[in-house]
Computed example of a mutant assay.
Amino acid sequence: MRADRTARTAGASGTARLRALHPMLWAAFASLAVGAVLCVLGWYGVSGERFAERQLPYLASCTVPGAALIVAGTLLLTHGRSVLAAARVEELYGLLVTTEPPAPPERTRTTADGTPLMVPGGTLWHRADCPLVAGKPEAVPADATVLSAQALAPCPICEPERPPEPEGPPPSPAPEP
């Protein structure tokens, strides 16, 4: 399910979601500003009146709605920032974690006849499933003449068995007299 959400937030829809949150933040700032102005107007109106019964209309029409707008703006700002942060975290998660299926595991190189492998310039010969040659494209089947000359040592990790000695060169035909 998380991969599903990540796929939705990645790319163009992720930036669209970030852009859609900005109006909420603008509304929060506007609400805070209007609430502050109403509170100042209410205070100014109340301070100019001597009697409490003449101060009540300023409290009811300016100060109480102003305080309510300040509380609402604070809630909008807090919610908008947390949603914005969550959207950014989801976008980063989508960038860091791919939702594509993992690549198939690398096939182990095998030779049909069990020929050992060697790395050119190396000093060891290996079995095809040895971890030291797994994933190395430069590993090639070891030449039988190199093995018979014992120029390479067997790998101490995979401990390959020595392949059968190659048959000698075919006898050349005897020259006819």
Rank of each mutant, 00 (worst) to 15 (best):
G122H: 01
G73Y: 00
P141V: 00
Q55E: 15
A134M: 10
L59A: 05
R162K: 08
S61Y: 15
Y58I: 01
G45R: 13
P164S: 08
P156C: 05
V146I: 12
P175K: 06
R162E: 14
A142Y: 05
G11Y: 00
G114F: 13
E176H: 06
P173K: 00
P163A: 01
D143C: 02
A142G: 04
T115M: 15
R88Y: 07
T108R: 07
A27Q: 09
I70T: 04
P104F: 00
V71L: 12
R50L: 13
V119Q: 11
V140I: 11
S13D: 00
P163E: 04
L18K: 00
T9N: 10
P104E: 13
D4M: 14
T115Y: 00
T63S: 13
G42R: 12
S13E: 13
G114R: 06
P65W: 02
F29S: 12
S61A: 14
L84H: 04
A151Q: 10
P171D: 12
T115E: 12
G94C: 03
S47E: 06
A30H: 08
P131V: 03
A67G: 05
D143S: 06
R162F: 01
T123S: 08
Y58S: 07
E176C: 07
Y58L: 03
T111C: 08
L95I: 10
W125N: 09
K136R: 10
A139N: 05
T111P: 07
Y93V: 09
V89W: 08
T108K: 01
V83I: 10
L84K: 04
A103K: 02
T123P: 01
W26E: 12
A27V: 10
P120Q: 05
V40C: 00
A153V: 13
L124R: 01
R81M: 14
R127Q: 10
D143K: 03
G73P: 01
A36G: 09
G42Q: 07
D143H: 05
E165V: 12
P120F: 06
I70G: 04
P120Y: 04
C155M: 07
L132V: 14
T145D: 13
V34N: 05
R50K: 14
T115N: 11
G14A: 11
T74I: 08
E161P: 12
A68W: 01
L152D: 08
E91T: 01
A72P: 02
Y44A: 06
G66N: 05
P101T: 03
P141Y: 00
D113E: 11
W26V: 15
W125K: 04
R109A: 12
E90V: 02
T123Y: 01
T145S: 12
L95K: 04
R109N: 06
S13T: 11
G121L: 03
D129T: 14
E53C: 09
A86K: 03
T111K: 07
A36S: 12
P175F: 09
T9D: 07
A85C: 04
L32V: 09
A36P: 08
I157K: 09
T99H: 03
T15S: 10
L117P: 03
Y44Q: 09
L75E: 09
P57G: 09
A36I: 08
